[in-house]
Design a protein around this nucleic acid. Sequence first.
DNA 1: GCACGATTCAAACGCCCGTTTGAAACCATC
DNA 2: GATGGTTTCAAACGGGCGTTTGAATCGTGC
Lengths: 237, 237
Amino acid sequence: MRAQRPARRSPAPEALSQDTKSRILDAAESLFTEHGFEATSLRSLTAAAGVNLAAVNYHFGTKEELFQAVLTRRLDPMNQERIDLLDRYRREAGGRPLTCEKILSAMLIPALRLARDEKRGGKEFLRVLGRAYADPAPFIRNFLSAQYAEMISRFKDAFLEALPHLTKQELTWRLHFVMGALSYTLAGTDALKLMAQVLPNDRDNDEKLLQRLAPFLAAGLKAPLGDAKKLELVAND
Amino acid sequence: MRAQRPARRSPAPEALSQDTKSRILDAAESLFTEHGFEATSLRSLTAAAGVNLAAVNYHFGTKEELFQAVLTRRLDPMNQERIDLLDRYRREAGGRPLTCEKILSAMLIPALRLARDEKRGGKEFLRVLGRAYADPAPFIRNFLSAQYAEMISRFKDAFLEALPHLTKQELTWRLHFVMGALSYTLAGTDALKLMAQVLPNDRDNDEKLLQRLAPFLAAGLKAPLGDAKKLELVAND
DNA sequence: GCACGATTCAAACGCCCGTTTGAAACCATC
DNA sequence: GATGGTTTCAAACGGGCGTTTGAATCGTGC
């Protein structure tokens, strides 16, 4: 008679003990990070996960829905953590407006916690996320917009109180820059090569990275309103 | 057979905007922007350009080489412009270190000029570039590293003089953040949706965008060195 | 007007894609 | 040990992919 588990070529060692759905999600997270959505085939994905090719369509419907599932699994808890942390800071401040640094902390700390927690995907997932920010595919854009709407709205209100010298429009732009620096940083393993410098990529460095990013972003957010004279854009033609 | 060099012609190759090669480059710039590299097929690309399917392989070799050609066509002149402008500012300063804003101007003004110049691809190309920054494909990463090495190295030296309170390592990180905010901004037509706000996207706005980005980045670059106390990363567990 | 390299063209090549299918295997319940 | 819903499986489907081919066409120098 056959064994209880069908004989199969050895799957990825980390995926051995999990059920099919989790194995697919883990392999997808890893491969989407490495190659991007379009360049990752379901055949290579299911082979890495040690499951049958048809399992993705059975459990998730389509490849696009699998990608969204990869994002939701980590994104929902992280953004909820951000909102909860912001609320807690608000309560602790007792009605007074929060400082810019405090609000930034509420954005960055849950991301750092996620980056540290290998059981929740760690840095690998943050890179998938950073990539997704820059993807023009409508199903990704719409999905992210919906996922982030609540969180962004709350943080915008908080920043408006903390930075009264900024107009709503100016703040929108600066939050745009903040998200840019953040997502680029999260996505960038080899973006560092652009700087022609190699920095080790261990756990301590992730913390140091965000400790470097926060002062940079806080200073940018608090900067006085732009003055066209400082950038002599036209005078140099 | 594929020709090593095109036949000699009397008119300048720049003026021939209707020849096959240019039509392919223009269509590729547009479609790579809209769908990304992987999701753009040579069949749709050549159809949009009004040329035969085999023309891409004849004129550029492979799809990857076409993508590199799309980048080089705009990137080489823009980065050279950046270096030239930085040199000019240096000469005008007569030996004294440049201000942070001045150096930033040398980075941003050529990008703004390119964004304004529809004949050089305009904003469309900047979005291709922003996407490429976030792409993990090795042939893209290596290509961009090589393209940017010279420019980044020169600007790093200039910033080191302008920001003597920063260590080399700290500056590397901050330039990383600068490139992140910049590339994300350049890539983002619909990234604005994340802010749940619609801003018109005309020519004036491109200039205003960079006039907003520059003060933000200058303030971030000039920020004092990070203090772990400001981000209470560990204390909140 | 002929020759010849440069270019264009329609067609095909071989491969891999995401998805579907229907049968087999599994597993708790009776 | 039969039942029936759930999950896995090998195989195939239809189609699109990047690239190649070899003949037709073009443009110029002779």
